[in-house]
Design a protein around this nucleic acid. Structure first.
Length: 301
DNA sequence: CCACTAATAT
DNA sequence: CATATTAGTG
């Protein structure tokens, strides 16, 4: 009898516009080297202060709809060497990567991963691996996971009964009853399955997938740029309050309008040694489109 | 070693 | 403000 699941179910479809979003689990962050290649650092004049202008990743040409400027000259200048003045860019080590920008998409992957893993296995390392996001580090996930858990906790205490309401979490992020604007924002934008309440521990491998109906007609159809742009606009937070955060990393918008692939999904990162057995790439390399939330990366350990 | 929480720093 | 980072504990 229960099964108020159906409630959120319908909502899911809304949040889940197309299979493209939930198709393959693989996203790619940009590696620092790549980001650097895009960024032409100033020769010197570098203050020994923190805040490396490390202009966020390549900042794909997403000249925001309203930003006419931005000559997208994706010129990969030979990465000859930059002035050594800047705090060493040579050592790919010790490089401070820009703050990870948790875009709704990236967060979506995060939530999906957690949902598919089960609260039990949803630990930073596993999530990170399942996400297969190049550049994502355990710390990144851990930090976000912390916040995410707090968010869930907060919500549970506040709106538990309303099945529908809880489905979308705060329902309209920022609308209706958001617990605190401080905690939502990003979280409220994801489908957040109701199982995330404390307790649902599932071993792994058992998740009910909302079978992807995927009508044949929708199987693969590329949309138009406009559609994409709209989606992005919607996804992008229209609210910019932070100092000067750049949501960089959104697909590339080609100069002439032809849509090109922003990045190739780099998935198989060196599967360095994995002690425990597990981790089979559940999904073969798919050609994932969708903007890549990016961040920086370089692996370390 | 890894995960979790809380506090703190940027 | 959102993340990153650190410290302390299990």
């Amino acid at each position: 009898m229960r099964e108020d699941d159906t409630n959120w179910f319908s909502r899911w479809e809304e949040g889940l516009p197309s299979p493209e979003e939930l198709t393959p689990l693989s996203q790619t962050l940009i590696t620092p080297d790549l980001a650097m290649a895009f960024d032409i650092r100033n020769p010197h004049s570098n203050s020994p202060h923190h805040q490396i202008p490390q202009p966020p990743p390549p900042s794909n040409p997403l000249p925001s709809p309203g930003n006419p400027s931005q000559p997208n000259s994706a010129e990969f200048a030979d990465s000859g060497e930059l002035g050594s003045g800047t705090a060493g860019e040579e050592p790919a080590r010790t490089l401070k990567r820009p703050r990870l920008v948790w875009t709704p998409q990236l967060h979506k992957r995060f939530v999906d991963a957690v949902g598919h893993l089960g609260i039990k296995n949803a630990v930073p390392k596993t999530i990170m691996q399942l996400m297969s996001v190049d550049g994502l580090t355990r710390e990144n996930v851990a930090s976000h996971l912390q916040k995410y858990r707090l968010y869930l906790k907060r919500m549970q205490g506040l709106s538990a009964g309303g099945g529908a309401g809880s489905g979308g979490g705060a329902g309209g992020a920022g609308l209706g009853a958001s617990s605190d604007p401080a905690t939502d924002h990003l979280f409220a934008s994801s489908p957040v399955p109701p199982h995330f309440l404390h307790s649902a521990a599932r071993t792994n491998s058992d998740h009910f997938m909302p079978f992807v109906p995927v009508p044949a007609a929708l199987q693969h159809h590329h949309h138009h740029q406009q559609q994409m742009a709209a989606a992005v606009a919607a996804a992008a937070h229209p609210q910019l309050q932070q100092q000067y955060h750049r949501q960089v990393g959104h697909f590339g918008s080609p100069p002439n309008g032809s849509f090109e692939h922003p990045f190739l999904t780099r998935q198989p990162q060196p599967l360095h040694r994995m002690g425990q057995a597990m981790q089979h790439n559940p999904v073969p390399g798919y050609v994932e489109d969708m903007e890549s939330a990016n961040a920086a990366g370089g692996r370390k350990h």
